[in-house]
Computed example of a mutant assay.
Amino acid sequence: MSKPKPQFQPSNVLIVEVPPQFITLCETSGASPQAALRGMAAMLCGLRYDADDRLVPLDGPTA
């Protein structure tokens, strides 16, 4: 059985210059730079990604 496709569908491309320390932090934590930046952007909007890769409010239920 295949995993359902994530809800996130990129509609715009943004090129961002990040310091090398950010890349090192991502490599150390095992997160991709894209996932780390998506997570930070979601937190700024009061959101987070749940286990099914859906955006939910920060204070919403955990799954």
Rank of each mutant, 00 (worst) to 15 (best):
Q21W: 10
G39R: 04
C45R: 04
E27P: 01
Q7H: 03
D50T: 15
V13Q: 09
D59N: 07
G46M: 14
G46H: 10
S11G: 15
A36Y: 05
V56L: 12
G60E: 11
R48E: 03
G30Q: 12
Q9W: 01
L58M: 11
F22D: 10
F8E: 06
R48W: 04
A41H: 06
A35W: 00
P19E: 11
A31P: 01
V56H: 04
F8I: 04
R38G: 00
R48P: 02
K5L: 01
T62V: 13
I23V: 13
Q34S: 15
V18C: 11
G39C: 08
K5N: 05
V18A: 13
Q7L: 15
P10Q: 04
A51L: 10
P10S: 05
P57C: 13
L25W: 02
D52Y: 06
D59A: 02
R38T: 00
P10C: 03
Q34W: 05
T28N: 14
Q7P: 03
P19F: 12
F22G: 08
N12L: 13
D53H: 06
S32H: 12
V16N: 03
M40S: 10
L14V: 13
A42V: 05
S32P: 07
V56S: 08
L47A: 07
L47M: 12
R48S: 00
V16M: 08
